[in-house]
Design a protein around this nucleic acid. Sequence first.
RNA 1: GGCCCUAUCGUCUAGAGGCCUAGGACGCCGGGUUCUCAACCCGGUAACGCGGGUUCGAAUCCCGCUGGGGCUACCA
Length: 497
Amino acid sequence: MKVRTRVAPSPTGDPHVATAYVAMINACFARASGGDGRFILRIEDTDRTRSTQASEEAILASLDWLGLAWDEGPDVGGPHGPYRQSERSAVYAEHAARLLRDGHAFACFCSAERLEEMRVAQRAAHEPPHYDGHCLTLTHQAIQENERAGVPCVLRLKVPRDGVCVFEDVLRGRIEIEWKTVDMQVLMKSDGFPTYHLANVVDDHLMEVTHVIRGEEWISSTPKHLLLYDYFGWSGDTPTFCHLPLLRNPDKSKLSKRKNPTSILYYRARGFLPEALLHFLGTLVDGRNDEALLECSATSELLERMCSHFDLTRISLGGPVFDLEKLTWLNGQHLRRHHASEMLAILEAWGYAWPPAIAAEHRERIARLAMDRIRTLDEFGPLVAFFAERPDLSKADLELSKLPPAAAGEALALALRALAEIADALWREAEIGNVLKAAVAAHEWPFAQGLRFRDAVRVYYVAVTGSPTSLPLFDAMEILGKGESLRRLETALEKLH
RNA sequence: GGCCCUAUCGUCUAGAGGCCUAGGACGCCGGGUUCUCAACCCGGUAACGCGGGUUCGAAUCCCGCUGGGGCUACCA
């Protein structure tokens, strides 16, 4: 069978990592099914008050950034377009009319106020809120009067009063839901746009979707969807349903931006690599350790590798917690697979602007020194800023454990004397290191007997780089140059007095 | 509350009745390496929610309980 899957995001906010998660699984399944599998992107923008074009653009750009290429979609078109629901109004109107004509749906004129009162009463009576069927019994005449008077109207689904809806889920097996627990859902809103339920079913059918792979939150509305397939006479080819577990916050609730960053834009801005984010989402589906995924620097390559051992039926059902810590680690891993020269391009593509004071000839070397020390690209700038800017130190910055203030001053003076001896032409990382180590070793330390180099060196780090934890000192000093390095040591020494 | 889904280390997961003394990865802890911090290497910590069945044998199958989650809109 020719497999056709889709992801159907609603453009009502920032592109969500859960959308990418679902998209990835749909893309993998279509691809793993063979060469003729197709993956569709459909924009579900039927909520006119919340949908925005900016959001749609961001969703497309984000999925593209992650390498989740779709075969059919609003931008690339396809045989069953348009792929944007707001452009398919005529299709829904036609199908809605069909349901009404066949007696499978009914016009409802109830006001928002009445519905609200109804629900309040039901809640008070400890009943589950549901439409009470008020307009189900409207006479032909009453309906026409309402229409003539221009009373706003929606279309509701007729639902069997008893019996059980049974369907099969790829991951969960047989699911049974009693019809009496299914509400008479609105299918067409009073603004003339369809709700999710109608649009989704109509489009999935018309677009010949064979597998509906979506979030778990849709399980309880699946009976409505099945009913629609039946009403339209499509029950012969209802798609296969697969409900995916929902991504979770660390507290196990459904992933939300209140508790965890959810926007793909956020991760991009922080300097996460698309292959790292995709890889991470992949671990939520298949947590086995595939080391080969670490070697994939292109998202396309990564996706291909994931597809090679993808099995939709083996996804574990516990909602996975979105663990930023592991994502960050993965990002560091992917970062380090690149050469320093590639890092320059990656940083630039990400939007990093080198301070002009850092000469172009030093940049690759600086990148090489920095890349083992960052996990996300946004850590790069702060780490190398000292090359362009002299540290603004206070006396307190120079007070380090294992190094009394008097000894710190001694250490700085010592370094100054020793380093001044190095000829300009020999000002190299190895020479600087040797001279400094020898000087510290040969010195008598009245205020810090037996001082080890590793303790003394910290004050040099602070003086030169502004921080006791920074890029390797000798390299930094070589890059800064003899004059600048000595000047920073001097400044630090002055600060101590 | 009602309906539905779900349950292996803190986290992601492996596990398909005997290969389980439950494996890997992140995290954490310890060690090595080292000019700081990282990176890297080595080692350690830590789980089958509880109670009943079925079976010669259960993490695995069944039931109940408990915990977690979702849905309960003219949002998706």
